[in-house]
């Protein structure tokens, strides 16, 4: 009783559980509905009398379902995540590792590029006027269209492997970082900037002592968006490079061979990777913001 009480009163567990449960229920129902056409067709050919119960049971254990049921995906995950050695090419951990390394490299490059562009925009009037429209335009180009070209162009000059994939992650990542950092670097109140002027501080001193620390909360808000985008970028980049592995390659293989369950398993691993990365950034953010506010409790 007390344990149930505690779970209820912690206020977080119950809503999450309710959402997950209803998603799984909807998923099972969806599996019956989406797989029913195929099954009913088969029943009629074989002249089998069928009930809703039989339909559901068959729908949840089909070999090639339109929508696999949660336990089938669970089984596939167990087979490819836990049972396989992580060095095996059939292990999703192995593929997730490939995707993770290219998204992290892309994230790092994108953050560096974003911060550098933001500094340029804040400090150089010409860049402020000229650069922003191009940066916005860069994000209106569909990434799916541009990704294969980047891979091909870089491949033709002999750059292959991790780096071209990271470039695509970087392409998606730098945008939120630029926008957030420009806002952050401009965030100090005029009174603080005037104060620096009365100290006759050099531009570098104003940057490192005032503008950069003031921009940190804005940077972290952007980094959370950027890290999730970097995983998307890495997966998109892996689609045209199918052979080299990664979760994107897994998705492509799955769709070649009609292995829908395999696609779902890869999708779930991809979202787990993203969620873990966003959580990690959130954790670092909490530490950084606490320091910035002099140890005062902060809400993020």
């Amino acid at each position: 009783m007390t344990m149930i009480d505690r779970l209820v009163h912690q206020g977080r567990f119950l809503p999450v559980l309710a959402v997950v449960t209803s998603l799984i229920v909807i998923w099972y129902a969806g599996a019956v509905y989406l797989n029913s056409t195929q099954l009913i067709d088969r029943y009629q050919k074989q002249e089998i009398d069928w009930t809703i119960g039989r339909l559901a049971a068959d729908a949840w254990r089909m070999e090639r379902p339109v929508l696999p049921s949660p336990h089938q995906v669970g089984l596939e995950l167990k087979k490819t995540v836990i049972d396989k050695r992580v060095t095996s090419k059939r292990s999703l951990v192995y593929h997730a590792g490939i995707t993770l390394s290219s998204s992290l490299l892309g994230f790092a490059l994108g953050t560096l590029l974003g911060v550098a562009l933001a500094i340029g925009i804040v400090y150089v009037t010409t860049l402020d006027r000229s650069l922003m429209p191009w940066i916005i335009a860069s994000q209106t180009v569909p990434i799916l269209a541009i990704a294969p070209m980047i891979i091909v162009v870089l491949g033709s000059i002999g750059i292959t492997g991790l780096f071209p994939k990271s470039v695509i992650s970087m392409y998606l990542c730098f945008f939120p970082v630029v926008v957030g950092m420009v806002k952050g670097l401009r965030s100090p109140e005029p009174i603080l900037v005037d104060q620096m002027h009365t100290y006759s501080a050099s531009p570098a001193q104003v940057f490192f002592k005032l503008r950069l620390p003031s921009s940190i909360p804005f940077l972290f808000a952007s980094l959370k968006v950027a890290i999730a985008l970097s995983v998307v970028g890495a997966i998109v980049a892996e689609l045209p490079t199918g052979g080299q592995g990664g979760l994107g390659a897994r998705l492509l293989t799955g769709s070649y061979y009609g292995q829908i369950t395999m696609i779902w398993a890869a999708l779930i691993v991809a979202s787990i990777v993203s969620a873990l990365l966003v959580t990690a950034i959130g954790y670092i953010e909490r530490i950084a913001l606490r320091r910035l506010s002099g140890g005062q409790a902060v809400s993020t």
Partner: peptide
């Protein structure tokens, strides 16, 4: 030395 209307202290 200039003293502003607000304390203008750095929270960190």
């Amino acid at each position: 030395g200039y003293i502003f209307q607000a304390p203008a202290l750095y929270p960190w």
